[in-house]
Simulated assay, not measured.
Amino acid sequence: MTEQAEQQPPLQPMPADWRRALAVVAHPDDLEYGCAAAIAEWTDGGREVAYLLATRGEAGIDGVAPDECGPLREAEQRASAAVVGVSTVEFLDHRDGVVEYGLGLRRDIAAAIRRHRPELVITLNHRDTWGGVGGGGYWNTPDHKAVGRAVLDAAADAGNRWIFPELVSEQGLEPWDGVRWVAVANTTTPTHAVDAGPGLERAIRSLLEHKAYISALTDQDPEEYVRGFLTGNVQQTAARFGGRPAVPFEVFPR
């Protein structure tokens, strides 16, 4: 255990008394880099998890035009989700790279929460910086920050009939005040964790489905790159989770 880990409190097990989750992120591959091992563990246990992506990742590969890149990355995301037991993957079609926090984004996410009626909502780090479990100074992207903050707000919006009343009048989406937690992956200030051991191999296969994106990202052998990245991440968490490799989350109860 590192000196830094010794100074931090142990991570608590994630709440387990729920049946439905909705994972809301900005781009294809966000969940695979962030928490697919946990999602595999949850679906194995009979829980339902759906994915909602703000964009199709169409601006994510230099040299591939957005109108070609978007469908490619959408297909890779659907294949990736299937590896960890997720069959419902939806896209909001906000523009990749220029997602704006605001009422439109909050409304779209609140509508999805009302449709899916989850008890747990998952998103990605909404803070200005991100890095390893022990902290990090890497600047986060505007899309991640906008979507993460909108998710935290939309979890409350979804339960208030007087916020976005058009969701009832125009779409028939009654309020859903059943979100009990929002769990943020890839945070530098985690509070909880999920044992990564049972789902790690499928998490690796899931990220490997993003073939075009990974091939543009690195010249390293894809499996070597993916295995090294994901294994290193979950090992960093082990010192605060009883020595077990784990996926960390910052949990906000509601």
Rank of each mutant, 00 (worst) to 15 (best):
R205C: 00
S169G: 12
G63Y: 02
D219C: 01
E100F: 11
G104C: 09
V64L: 15
L173V: 07
P28G: 03
S80M: 08
V99K: 05
F164K: 02
S169Q: 13
L105I: 05
E224F: 11
G57D: 06
Q12K: 14
R56D: 12
A81C: 05
V25Y: 15
R254C: 06
Q4W: 08
F241G: 01
G104S: 12
A65G: 13
T88Q: 15
L200K: 00
L124F: 15
R107A: 11
S169E: 15
I39W: 01
A203D: 02
P222W: 00
L31W: 09
A246M: 09
I61M: 04
Q4T: 12
T88K: 13
D67Q: 13
D29N: 00
R205S: 09
R244S: 13
I122K: 06
A37F: 02
I163L: 15
H126P: 14
L103N: 09
D128K: 14
E48P: 00
I113R: 00
A111R: 10
N140F: 10
G242Q: 02
R95A: 14
R20M: 09
A81P: 03
A110I: 10
D17G: 05
P165L: 07
R56G: 12
M14E: 04
Q12L: 14
A155V: 10
R205T: 02
E90Y: 00
L11P: 07
G199N: 06
A196P: 11
D128N: 12
I109A: 11
F252V: 15
